[in-house]
């Protein structure tokens, strides 16, 4: 591996945006913040491919584009295959002396629908084949582009338009698919979770994902004010709460070796700092129905699964 990337906040601020303003994302959009931050961490020539989804739609309404890098979108379920094709082409063109650049990085962006659900096969295939690219999952926990339908990434109890909090069913009955662990199980060189509330951690992990040879997977927590029903000013606050409650702990796995990232390590070392999930849930109206009489047990279920998964993670990180 190359020497660790050192940067100052000033350098990051002054680095020209590659994902520029003028796109049509909603106020307070978590994924748009994620993309801007991630593109700050690029290290040279980069090609981006984007699955169908909010970020594709808001950033490339013809004849406009928010992208200052070569960018391609083809469909919803195939972004990992798209990245495979770009990487294969770069490899052979380089071998034949037809590529001007010494190295070109490839980044694939997809939402939770395009990753947990419809794009999982292509992602698994690309990971198994070992293409050198960074896959970024921007997770806003439902199909927001089509109007807030539940996905495999939607958490237990969340109300969406296809898992509404009703009179008898309290939102999504199933639990969130542990996608990052599934990617670790592919034995790829680098898997990490990150949150837009901790931008330095996010861009460091982005850079690591780019530097590593082979597939890297970055799971970025990116709240959606429209879908999660909170005020647009609360996006970063909610992202931080997800980490502090261990609903979305931050970690990385290098060649399968898990380690906690600083913001979650603090909680591991000082368990009294672990906030109850209730604090995270009560600020979002997608969980509002759980606070009515009759459904409060769901909050306990969410606390239980959060604790269970947190403890499993601590074990993987050798923290007991």
């Amino acid at each position: 591996m190359t020497a660790p990337w050192k940067f100052t906040a000033r350098e990051i601020v002054e680095k020209p945006d590659l994902f520029t303003s003028g796109h049509r994302a909603c106020a307070g959009c978590g994924p748009a913040i994620a993309l801007r931050q991630i593109m700050k961490a690029t290290r040279g020539p980069t090609i981006v491919t984007n699955a169908t989804g909010c970020m594709e739609v808001v950033s490339t309404i013809y004849p406009y584009t928010a992208w200052k890098v070569p960018w391609i979108h083809t469909a919803f379920e195939n972004v990992a295959a798209n990245a495979s094709g770009i990487e294969a082409a770069l490899k052979v063109l380089k071998r034949k002396g037809k590529l001007e650049h010494k190295n070109v990085d490839v980044i694939a962006f997809a939402g939770d629908g395009g990753t947990f659900d419809i794009g999982l096969q292509a992602l698994s295939g690309a990971a198994e084949r070992g293409h050198d690219f960074l896959y970024v999952l921007y997770d806003n926990e439902a199909y927001m582009n089509t109007g807030i339908q539940r996905s495999g990434g939607t958490p237990h109890g969340a109300s969406t338009t296809t898992s509404p909090g009703g009179k008898v069913i309290p939102g999504k009955p199933q639990f969130k698919k542990p996608i990052a662990n599934i990617m670790v199980a592919h034995e790829i060189p680098y898997v990490a979770t990150a949150s837009i509330s901790f931008w330095q951690d996010l861009i460091i992990k982005t850079r690591r994902g780019l530097e590593v040879k082979g597939p890297a997977f970055l799971h970025v927590f990116a709240p959606c004010p429209r879908g999660w029903r909170y005020h647009t000013s609360k996006t970063i606050e909610i992202s931080r709460l997800a980490v502090e409650t261990c609903v979305f702990p931050l970690w990385e796995a290098k060649y399968g070796e898990y380690s906690l990232s600083p913001q979650s390590k603090v909680v591991a070392l000082k368990p009294e700092r672990k906030k109850p999930v209730k604090e995270y849930l009560e600020v979002q109206r997608r969980f509002g129905h759980l606070f009515k009489p009759g459904f409060r047990n769901v909050i306990d279920e969410i606390q239980n699964i959060t604790d269970k998964r947190w403890n499993q993670l601590l074990k993987k990180c050798n923290i007991t």
Binding site: G85, A89, L93, Q121, G125
Partner: peptide, 18 residues
């Protein structure tokens, strides 16, 4: 690839890369 869908998807972006 792991499917024809991915095969053509990979060809498409490879072609777009030149």
């Amino acid at each position: 690839t792991e499917s024809e869908h991915s095969a053509l998807s990979a060809c498409l972006t490879a072609s777009a890369t030149g």
